[in-house]
Each structure stands twice: as C-alpha cells, then as structure tokens.
Amino acid sequence: MELRKLLLPGLMSVTLLSGCSLFSGEEDVVKMSPLPTVENQFTPQQVWDTSVGDGTGDFYSNLHPAWQDNTLYAADRFGVVKALDASNGKEKWKVDLSEKTGFFSRNRSALLSGGLTVAGDKIYIGSERAQAYALNTGDGSIAWQTTVAGEALSRPVVSDGLVLIHTSNGILQGLDQNSGAVKWTVNLDMPALSLRGESAPSTAFGAAIVGGDNGRVSAVLMNQGQIIWQQRISQPSGATEIDRLSDVDTTPVIVNGVVYALAYNGNLTALDLRSGQILWKREIGSVRDLIVDGGRIFLVDQDDRVIGLSTDGGVTLWRQSDLLHRNLTSPVLYNGYLVVGDAEGYLHWMNTEDGRFVAQQKVDSSGFQSEPVVASDKLVIQAKDGTVHAITR
C-alpha cells in the first residue's frame, strides 16, 4: 500500500490560511482571526537578531535552535549550521552540510528538518534525505553521519547512550551515540495517509515513549528495541480522509509516572507509564507540543485555541480563543508567562492563570513556524526566513 504524507498543518497554513485554495474557484474554508488588540503590560526587548542561512521558506519544517553553555546552535533547511554566542548573537563557527555538485552550480540542499539537539560535546540533526548527523560543538565538524530508515522530520532525542530517530515511514531507530551505528529498528506501523511530521520520543526509566501516525502511543525498551506496550488514543472516524487523520505527532510528556499525549483529530490522554493504561482523556486534538508544569497542562489545539487544563482529570481551567487559525507555534513558558508565535511573525504573551494577553509584539514579517526556545534569560525564536531573534522580558 502506498504511504502518503499530507502537508498538514503546512497545508492548512499555506493553502487555507493564506487566502489561496486547493482548487480553482473553491472558497476558503478557514480564515485567520484578526490580530487581537492588546494593551501591553510590559514591552519585551529584542537583544539581538542574526541570519542563519535561508531558513525554511514555505516548506513545513520544525527546525528550531538548541542551547547549551551560552552557545546557541541553529540551522537552515539548505544545510547551514551555525554556533552563536547567546549573549550577542555573534557567530562562533559555521558549517555547510549541503552536497558539493560542481564548481558553477549551487550545492545540493541537505534538507535539514526537525530541531537541533545538543548533548555533551555533540549536536544532532536529521534530514529529509534520511541522514542523521552528529557535529562537534567545538567547530561544527562532522563526528559521524548515518543513513536512517526514512525522512527524519522530528528532532533527535539522546538518552541511555542512544540517539533516537523517528522517521516519516513510521520507523523508530536507536543509533549508537558515539559512532552512529544503528543498534535496533522498530516498525511502529503506518496508515495510508498521515500528516507531515513525526513525534519526537520522550524517555524515562530505560523506555522511549513515542507517538505514531496510527493514533497509538508506544513504549519501547531502549536497550533491546522491543515494544513494551501500545495504546490507541485516537480512532480514525469521519467522512473524509482528512477527518480520519489520527496522527500522534506531538512529543509525549512524562511527569510523575504519567504520560500525557495528544493526537490530531483525537484526544488529550493521560496514560500510566508502566502499563499504558488510560487514566483519563479529553476530546482535544493538536499537532503541537504541550507543556506540563505545576499540575497544569498548556497546549494549542488544532484550531489554535490556547488552553490551560488541570493534570487532575484534564479539567479546563481557561481557554483563549482570540488567535483562531493564526497557525500558532507550540507554546513555551518564559519568565512565568506563556508565549506563542504566529504565522504573521507576532509573539503573544499570556498570563498562565487565566490566559489573558499581557503583551504582544511584531518580531519578524516572514512569520514563525517553530516554537521559541528558552536560553538562560533570553527567549529565542527562529523565523521562516532564517532570522534568529533573541528577546528578554
């Protein structure tokens, strides 16, 4: 059976929200909410900005920076990777992972995708060309490069001496952290049609917890690459193929022995870490990562409502609905506030107690697709055109 990756949510943002349509003469199905009027309680300050290559353009990508020891690592889709001083944005080193094709022609794009991950003295990143790279943090030189089972669309996860790569064809692989050698491969199964994106695993007690395009959450024993349990949190239903999409593309969150997972067209579900048994579920769908903090869950649903819930039964604490269909990023907690970016390049700051706006700022006209990153006292976000912005409260 042919497996197809549907360009969603990129499809929604590019074709529906931009004012274009899938077919000539077809009316737009979804319209972006107008920018809400916000009376700023404070003015976030931009400390610096710098360009990292050409960004991601109109391609759906979750490329975002990683931070360690006052150094920020960022990349563009073409293959440029830079190390930046987090204090001032100055370049420490730059490498280009694109392939040399000839003296007069442009290099072949590396098609870097997902986010960067930094662990110890290495940076890890995957590509749509089924390559996983480990770069040395000191100078960006390649420590190893491995061909994996398919497009590596999510960020690599490093745990227990392994680099975990989840590919677009439903394969989870464990690579040796030092050499890049493939230690094991697990097939998580694939439906005929799925969203363009994959869940990055979370790890705890020697197990990797990962979402699949089949609506299931799986626990995999990392030292052997064996599935411990699987639990379905989304059941395909509806009249159309899009209605029946049930991908779990978000990264599960593990807190106090409970796994919190979120599916598209599905449920926010709390699972027992040991058994996979469902503890409770709420009918909320999304492809964006969620936050669990202090007994509360913060998430952006698939219609771009920002929601605060209790970890005790998933009771809704508040709902912010003034950003509908603005193609929000995943949320991040920074200085006690909840922050999301949108497709028009705005950052929206919200009170975590009630979801009310406390600040809003236009940062980049090319817009945002990937979530902000907290780097010490700064909030860092990469725009679609490759510009990296550092902001403080």
Rank of each mutant, 00 (worst) to 15 (best):
Q145W: 12
V186P: 06
E151A: 08
L162F: 12
P156S: 00
L188Q: 05
S179N: 10
V148R: 07
V182P: 08
V182E: 14
S179Q: 10
L153K: 07
Q173G: 09
H166V: 05
L172F: 09
R155F: 05
S168H: 12
G150C: 01
A181S: 06
D160W: 13
W144R: 08
M190Y: 11
S159A: 11
V158E: 12
G138W: 14
N178Q: 15
S179D: 06
P156R: 04
P156Q: 01
K183A: 13
I142V: 15
A143F: 10
A152H: 07
L162Y: 12
G138P: 12
G180F: 00
T137F: 08
I165F: 06
Q145H: 14
K183V: 10
W184K: 09
I165Y: 05
S179V: 06
N169D: 09
S179R: 08
S141Q: 10
Q145F: 13
I171S: 07
G150T: 01
D176G: 04
A181W: 02
I171M: 12
S168A: 13
G161P: 02
D160F: 14
G161S: 00
P156H: 00
L153I: 11
T146K: 09
N187F: 05
L153C: 08
L175C: 07
A149L: 13
G170V: 01
M190N: 10
S168G: 10
S159Q: 03
H166C: 02
L172S: 09
E151S: 13
G174N: 04
D160V: 10
R155H: 02
L188W: 01
G161F: 01
L188R: 02
Q177D: 07
Q173T: 09
G174H: 06
T146S: 15
N136Y: 15
N178F: 05
D189V: 13
L164S: 04
L175K: 09
L164Y: 05
S168Q: 10
V182L: 12
P156V: 03
L188F: 04
V163S: 04
M190T: 15
D189R: 15
I165A: 02
I171W: 03
T137R: 11
S168C: 05
A181C: 00
D176T: 07
L162E: 00
I171A: 07
Q145M: 15
W144C: 14
Q145P: 13
G174P: 01
L164V: 00
T137Q: 11
A152G: 04
V157A: 01
G170S: 08
P191F: 08
N169Q: 08
P156E: 02
T147V: 14
H166L: 04
W184T: 09
I142W: 08
D189N: 15
A152C: 03
V158N: 12
I171C: 09
S154W: 05
T185N: 13
R155P: 04
Q177E: 13
Q177Y: 03
H166G: 06
T137P: 09
G161D: 09
T167I: 03
L188E: 02
G170D: 00
T185K: 14
L162K: 03
N187T: 10
L175A: 10
A143Y: 01
G150M: 07
Q177W: 03
D139V: 10
A149F: 09
